[in-house]
């Protein structure tokens, strides 16, 4: 592995060593994640890869949302000194949402369609903290304001289908941040949004992460976006980490996969016909 050890920060929040996720299928066992190792401080870490690279399953395994038929194993998977694999499901649930939160790609599917946005945020808060209804409402409104929703009192009473995609994703972020988590996992949080809205949402996320000193894992297929947003980047291919590097050093990426991925996207002002394509080598997956 080409881990840039010196790029690792002090004060580790999350440590992942040799994480494996195995799915049973009709034709035998399939490993979606095959020995992923990295550590995270209070920083923004990007996990980049194409479909089937195991990036989402890595995020889900940390979150404890792996489908029950699959098996998760690791030499070490610890969050703030807590061994995530040995604690009870109940303790895991308490951790989830309270200290570790996750944002998914499409707010349409991750918000409850029959509950108002405000009530969802209030309920999330009240399951993790003992606060009065009035205070919960006050804090929810404050949170909606923090994600730059201009008229929080109105949005509070709306149902998810009544708001736009960008607004829904902001509400989702508000809901995830209300309990004050220390680690946030964002799985393609902006892929379903229009480009201009995408930047607004990323700005909000960026500011909140910086202000609250959270650790962020940003999972995406878009290498360029991730490298402009994160401090460090982990590049995954076929369930393995092929390269870890500082986002600012992406141009000097050594692995041919990372370089190929950067190269193959069309860029404004760089005329290349035909576009360079990725020549996948079997040894990358070995």
């Amino acid at each position: 592995m080409n881990g840039n050890r010196d790029a690792q920060p002090k004060g580790t929040l999350l440590e992942v060593d040799d994480l494996r996720v195995t799915f049973p299928t009709r034709t035998g066992l399939v490993q979606a994640v095959r020995g992923v190792s990295f550590s995270l401080g209070r920083e923004r870490l990007g996990i980049v890869g194409e479909s089937g690279s195991g990036k989402s399953q890595t995020g889900r395994a940390i979150m404890g949302l792996t489908p029950p038929q699959a098996e998760v194993s690791a030499k070490k998977l610890s969050f703030d000194g807590i061994d995530l694999l040995s604690i009870s499901p109940r303790q895991r649930r308490a951790l989830r949402g309270n200290r570790i939160a996750m944002i998914l790609q499409d707010p349409k599917y991750s918000l409850d369609p029959v509950m108002t946005i405000g009530r969802q945020i209030v309920e999330t808060l009240r399951t993790h903290e003992k606060v009065s209804k009035a205070e919960a409402r006050e804090r929810a409104l404050e949170m909606l304001r923090a994600v730059q929703i201009r008229d929080p009192a109105r949005v509070f009473d709306l149902h998810p289908h009544e708001v736009s995609g960008g607004m829904g994703q902001r509400a989702m972020i508000a809901m995830m941040l209300i309990a004050g988590p220390e680690l946030m996992i964002a799985d393609e949080p902006t892929s379903a949004l229009d480009v201009t809205v995408q930047l607004d949402v990323l700005n909000i996320l960026d500011r909140l992460v910086a202000e609250r000193g959270m650790g962020l894992i940003f999972i995406s297929h878009d290498l360029r976006l991730v490298s402009s947003f994160c401090d460090r980047v982990v590049v995954m291919y076929a369930g393995k980490v092929v390269e870890q590097l500082k986002a600012s050093e992406l141009r000097d990426a050594r692995h041919p996969y990372t370089r190929g991925l950067l190269n193959c996207m069309p860029r404004i002002g760089f005329e290349r016909h035909p576009l360079p394509v990725l020549d996948r080598k079997p040894e990358w997956a070995a």
Binding site: E50, D222, L261, C264, P274, V277
Partner: peptide
Amino acid sequence: ASVQAEVLNLLEEVRRRRKLTFLMVSHDLA
């Protein structure tokens, strides 16, 4: 992204070979 490059190259190639007119929709300026 890598598959996108292959498909875009293919589209350019068939356009050149068959002298096609393209009307293409995308959200991506690049």
